[in-house]
Amino acid sequence: MEKALWYLLAGTRGGENRARIIESLDERPRNANQLAEHLEVDYNTIRHHLEMLVEHNVLEKSGADYGTMYFLTDKFEHHRDTYDQITDNME
């Protein structure tokens, strides 16, 4: 998970948006449309980042299609200190 977080947040161009998505989902679960509105980011961009975060086990989803809700995984929570270290260096 640590390597995945470094890659997703610090190693690629979308790291800042991914960190914003994680912060938003830390407040409460949301679907892609809610995230796009809340973060003022294009829906398709949000969908791309969500797919990457799910693929790397940072997020899990519940539901189907349009109403799919996204949650932080327990695995991510176990490595939150790494996330904090990375995002502290991003600011």
Rank of each mutant, 00 (worst) to 15 (best):
H38F: 04
H78F: 05
M52H: 15
I46E: 06
V41Y: 01
T82E: 10
V58D: 08
K61Q: 14
Y70N: 06
D42C: 02
T82F: 02
R80P: 01
K75L: 08
E55W: 06
F71C: 03
N44V: 03
H56N: 15
H38W: 01
A36K: 00
E55Q: 15
Y66S: 15
E40Y: 04
D42A: 12
H79Y: 14
Q85M: 05
H78T: 11
E55Y: 11
Y66Q: 11
H78E: 14
T73N: 10
E40L: 05
H56W: 10
D42W: 02
V54Y: 05
H79P: 01
L50G: 07
G67Q: 11
D65N: 11
M52S: 12
T73M: 04
R80V: 04
G63L: 12
L39H: 06
I46C: 05
L39G: 06
T73E: 02
M52P: 01
N44C: 08
L72W: 05
N57D: 15
D84F: 00
T68L: 02
H38V: 00
Y66E: 13
V58E: 06
H48E: 11
D81K: 10
H48F: 13
M52G: 14
H56T: 13
E51F: 05
H79A: 10
D74L: 08
L72A: 08
